[in-house]
Simulated assay, not measured.
Amino acid sequence: MANETLALVQEKPAQYLDQDGLWKKVITDLFKPFMLFFAPDLYDKLDWSRMPDSLEQELHRTFPVIEGKRYTDKLMKIHLKDGKEQWILAHIEVQGYKDDDFSERMFQYFYRIFDKYQQKIFTIALLADPDRSFKPTVYDYHFHGTTLTYIYNTYKFLDQDEEELLQSDNPFAYVVLAGIYTLKSKKMPANAINSSVVCLN
């Protein structure tokens, strides 16, 4: 499984790992281990006999692409295993740069998705940016007695322990490691970049 994961992340050079297309492919192809890695409690409640559906095209129609946008969005329809025709949505963002408006945009995605589908939503933002201080987790709105707080899940790549990831038997840990090496590679020569990714094998 580790070799298959490496094949996915090595389809393009490591310095391009944060490109939208590759992130979407990796998350889609490894969605089951993705959910186990980032949301193990929810993973146990899902009916994996039913294939998750990718809905980001619907998301793009609901929320048109902003010119110059440089982040990945992924919307998946997943089913609970309680025997009912009940399903939830997994909204995933991969954010590769610091953006002071990021939390507001996460909230906008949430309410537009909820308004369209009227289903439960699991949200997580993968923070694959190089700024250690950028750790958005909440959107707060206050105006003359009207108050709203939206809290969402985040995962900061630069805060992770590389040795712990290397010991994981979840293939998505290798994707995270490749993302970490990509961030470090921006200060490394090209030959060192490729060596860093290959050493995962």
Rank of each mutant, 00 (worst) to 15 (best):
E4R: 14
E4Q: 15
T5K: 02
T5M: 15
Q10H: 09
E11S: 15
E11D: 14
E11H: 10
P13N: 07
P13W: 07
P13S: 05
Q15P: 08
Y16N: 08
W23Y: 08
F34G: 01
F34E: 00
M35C: 11
F37Y: 11
P40W: 10
P40N: 06
Y43M: 07
L46H: 01
D47C: 05
S49W: 14
R50C: 06
M51T: 13
P52R: 09
S54Q: 12
Q57Y: 11
E58P: 05
L59V: 07
R61I: 09
T62E: 12
E67R: 12
E67Y: 06
G68A: 15
G68L: 13
K69V: 10
M76Q: 04
I78N: 00
I78T: 08
W87E: 10
I88R: 07
L89V: 09
A90N: 06
H91S: 12
H91C: 12
I92S: 00
Y97R: 08
D100M: 13
F102N: 00
S103G: 07
S103P: 10
E104Q: 10
R105E: 04
F107G: 01
F107A: 02
Q108A: 07
Y109M: 02
Y109Q: 01
F114C: 04
Y117G: 02
Q119D: 09
I121P: 06
F122C: 03
T123Y: 14
T123M: 11
L126F: 09
L127D: 00
L127G: 01
L127E: 02
L127S: 02
P130S: 03
S133D: 08
S133W: 02
F134V: 11
K135T: 13
K135F: 11
V138G: 02
Y139N: 06
H142F: 04
H144W: 11
H144G: 04
L148Q: 12
T149F: 05
I151P: 08
Y152E: 00
N153S: 15
N153I: 10
N153A: 15
N153F: 14
T154Q: 08
T154D: 05
Y155G: 01
Y155R: 05
K156E: 04
F157L: 11
L158M: 15
L158P: 02
E164A: 06
E164H: 04
E164M: 04
L165A: 03
L165Q: 03
L165T: 06
L166S: 03
D169P: 09
N170D: 07
N170G: 11
P171A: 01
P171Q: 01
F172I: 05
V175C: 08
G179I: 03
G179Q: 01
T182A: 01
T182R: 05
S185T: 09
K186Y: 14
K187P: 03
K187M: 10
A190D: 14
A192V: 15
I193C: 11
I193S: 08
N194Q: 12
V197L: 14
V197N: 01
V197C: 02
V198P: 09
C199T: 10
N201A: 13
N201W: 08
